[in-house]
Write a protein that binds this DNA or RNA. Structure first.
Lengths: 138, 138
DNA sequence: TTCCATGCAAACACTTTGCACCGTG
DNA sequence: CACGGTGCAAAGTGTTTGCATGGAA
């Protein structure tokens, strides 16, 4: 997948430097699926040496700016970051059991058209989180 | 509107007490439209006497539990509270200019049906915020 | 007179910032 | 060897909690 292979080039192409910390943090985000900055920090430390919390915040910001990762708000607390090397998706979160479901953007097409037509508003699909109740928690 | 008139009864009926602070805070939320806890606090203080920040947090929680107000996340920062004495709605937020639009839930009906059918997931419409780009910010 | 609610202060969770040193390019 | 990145410590923002006092019912 080209996105995975040439991210080092993207970094350098944008004037950024390739550091061990940045590699470790991207690897953690990909490994964890959906993770808060704190979870990323602990994961990096578990799998290798120490990295500072502020480096995690700064790096997540850079990686998102480059389009390698995205964040969504899956709880009322910290944001969670996920890799975008795979296909775009949005999230359903159960307000009761907190379970997270990743959903294909196709189901949003009609809503996108409606909001585009009625409000000239373009949805940021990758950032969307819909809260509600899952099957088990009715 | 019955919701407005009998909220005092609802408080007492649920074992809560009617205090001046609770009246002031509810009035502020209704006056402000969409407001963070901090904005509510400042508004209460501007229009009357001092109230403590922790009282604001505790009161917003109670009022939401009673169904008098709701909160949504209109920024990556603090939540915003709004009254539900008027009709239910959800929010569009422009990621560029931060403008907020309130939208009628009708446009979600197809999405609701799809998520219900495919994932057995019931959307919490009042809590929904969709981020994207507004007309002016393309 | 009973408890729920409030004020106050401290603690907590999450994030940002300033600055000296480090190391990539 | 220049300049962007990191670690560290401190401060900033938003929220919660424990406890003594106050006041609604």
């Amino acid at each position: 997948m080209s996105t995975r292979d040439d991210w080092r080039e993207r970094l350098r192409g944008s004037g950024y430097r390739l550091t061990p910390q940045r590699e470790l943090i991207l690897a953690s985000v990909e490994r964890l699926g959906h993770a808060t900055p704190d979870e990323v920090l602990r994961d990096v430390r578990r799998h290798s040496e120490a990295v500072n919390a502020s480096t995690v915040y700064r790096t997540l910001e850079v990686l998102e700016e480059l389009g390698l990762i995205r964040h969504a708000h899956l709880s009322d607390r910290a944001p969670t970051y996920h890799s975008v090397t795979d296909h775009e998706h949005f999230h359903l979160v159960c307000r009761n059991c907190r379970e997270v479901f990743s959903v294909d953007p196709d189901v949003l097409s009609e809503l996108q058209e409606t909001l585009e037509a009625d409000h000239r508003f373009a949805i940021d699909v990758g950032h969307l989180t819909i809260f509600g109740r899952c099957e088990k928690c009715r």
